Amino acid sequence: MAEPKTKPTDASVPDFLDAAQPARRVEEGHRLATIMREETGVEPVMWGPSMVGFGSFHYVSASRTSTAEGDWPKVAFSPRKRALTLYGLKDQPEGAALLPELGGYTEGAGCVYVKRLEQVDEDVLRRLIRIAWSREDDPAR
Rank of each mutant, 00 (worst) to 15 (best):
R64Y: 06
V114Y: 02
A96G: 10
I129Q: 02
V75W: 01
M36G: 01
P4R: 03
A68P: 01
A33Q: 09
Q92T: 13
R116D: 15
G48R: 00
L17S: 05
A76R: 00
Y59E: 03
A96P: 02
V75C: 05
I131F: 06
T6P: 10
D121E: 12
F77R: 00
W72M: 14
D18H: 13
P22I: 01
V26H: 00
R116M: 12
G53F: 00
L98H: 05
V13F: 02
E28D: 14
F54S: 07
L86Y: 06
T67L: 05
P100E: 02
H58D: 15
Q119G: 14
Y113T: 11
G95L: 06
R25M: 10
G103S: 07
R130M: 07
A2D: 15
L98K: 07
A11S: 15
V42Q: 14
Q119D: 15
E101G: 10
G55P: 02
A76F: 00
R141I: 13
G70I: 06
A97I: 06
E38F: 01
W72G: 10
V60A: 10
I131K: 04
P4N: 13
G41D: 15
L117M: 09
T6F: 07
K7A: 15
V112S: 08
L128K: 03
F54I: 10
P22Y: 01
K81S: 14
R24Y: 12
A140N: 14
E122K: 06
T34Q: 14
P8W: 01
A109M: 11
D121H: 09
H30W: 02
F57E: 09
W133R: 05
L84E: 02
E43F: 06
C111I: 08
P44C: 03
H30I: 02
P44L: 03
T85E: 10
S63I: 06
F57S: 12
W133Q: 12
